[in-house]
Computed example of a mutant assay.
Amino acid sequence: MILTHIGGPTVLIEVDGWRLLTDPTFDPPGERYSFGWGSSSVKLTGPAVAPEDVGPVDAVLLTHDHHGDNLDVAGRALLPSAGTVVTTVSGSRRLGGAVGLAAGATTVLPGGPGRPSLSVTATPARHGPPLSHPIVGDVVGFAVRLADASAVALWITGDTVLFGPLRQVASSLAVDVALVHVGGVRFGITGPVRYTMTGREAVSLIGTLRPRIAVPVHYEGWSHFADGPAGLDAALAAAPGDVRSRVRRLELGTATSVA
């Protein structure tokens, strides 16, 4: 498996003949994006790879379509060129033509010469505190299996806080590589409430999951990451060695083998 972290939640995954892209964000920095109910964030850094340099994409795994830090204008423009877009049920209605999955549902992407079929299962995510769904909307993660394998080749947590169903997934799956969304998102208008995992919570999840490799993503490049790189650094410094040894932080824009 080769991973290229383009920035934020956007990662190009090359595995067994497949080219998958997560949460496409390719807008330049400097713009402020609204997240509803008076919340907003400024994009601070641009993508490490331009959309025209990404190359062909077989499938986009889109954890949610309604926040600009997970799907922006340039990322949206890329979607028609992708073979398949898999997202939430509500997102599929908004986008049209996408495969919509609720947590626990699975779709199979057919294989072909030189590559196996892919099984993509949506996993639970909650993008905020209890009862926040009417504000934050639907979000899912994705567990990707190659052909009929029982183990998960790749798990993407999606934008989520650490909550019961997420812990249950981490306890039940055998995962090779995990992309863990971190950052500890917080907005001034909602005070101390957080909308994604902090570094400490991500370390806890990795300790439960015990993947071969855990790659933190979506913790830099935006003003709403209250925990951010510093929080992740501190959490990893205090983490047990068994957790630290599993974490791989990628250099932006560099194709990295995690085989």
Score class of each variant (00 low, 15 high):
residue 139 V to F: 05
residue 139 V to Y: 05
residue 141 G to Y: 00
residue 141 G to F: 06
residue 142 F to D: 01
residue 145 R to A: 07
residue 146 L to G: 02
residue 146 L to K: 11
residue 148 D to K: 12
residue 148 D to W: 07
residue 149 A to P: 02
residue 149 A to V: 03
residue 149 A to E: 12
residue 150 S to I: 13
residue 153 A to H: 05
residue 153 A to Q: 06
residue 154 L to R: 03
residue 154 L to T: 01
residue 155 W to A: 06
residue 159 D to H: 12
residue 159 D to N: 14
residue 159 D to M: 11
residue 159 D to Q: 14
residue 162 L to R: 05
residue 163 F to Y: 12
residue 164 G to D: 15
residue 164 G to N: 14
residue 166 L to E: 09
residue 166 L to A: 11
residue 168 Q to K: 13
residue 169 V to G: 00
residue 169 V to Y: 00
residue 174 A to L: 11
residue 175 V to G: 09
residue 175 V to S: 05
residue 176 D to G: 14
residue 179 L to R: 08
residue 186 R to H: 10
residue 186 R to C: 09
residue 189 I to K: 14
residue 190 T to K: 08
residue 191 G to M: 04
residue 191 G to E: 01
residue 193 V to C: 13
residue 195 Y to H: 11
residue 198 T to R: 00
residue 200 R to T: 08
residue 202 A to D: 10
residue 203 V to C: 07
residue 203 V to R: 05
residue 204 S to K: 15
residue 204 S to H: 14
residue 204 S to R: 15
residue 205 L to F: 00
residue 205 L to K: 06
residue 205 L to E: 02
residue 206 I to G: 05
residue 208 T to A: 09
residue 208 T to G: 09
residue 209 L to T: 00
residue 210 R to F: 07
residue 210 R to A: 14
residue 211 P to H: 06
residue 212 R to H: 13
residue 212 R to W: 11
residue 213 I to S: 08
residue 215 V to A: 02
residue 215 V to Y: 03
residue 216 P to K: 06
residue 216 P to S: 02
residue 217 V to Y: 00
residue 218 H to L: 04
residue 219 Y to P: 11
residue 220 E to G: 10
residue 222 W to H: 13
residue 223 S to T: 08
residue 224 H to K: 09
residue 227 D to N: 11
residue 229 P to Q: 07
residue 229 P to S: 07
residue 234 A to F: 01
residue 238 A to W: 12
residue 239 A to C: 01
residue 241 G to C: 06
residue 241 G to K: 08
residue 243 V to D: 01
residue 243 V to I: 13
residue 243 V to N: 01
residue 245 S to C: 02
residue 246 R to T: 06
residue 248 R to V: 12
residue 249 R to A: 11
residue 252 L to Y: 12
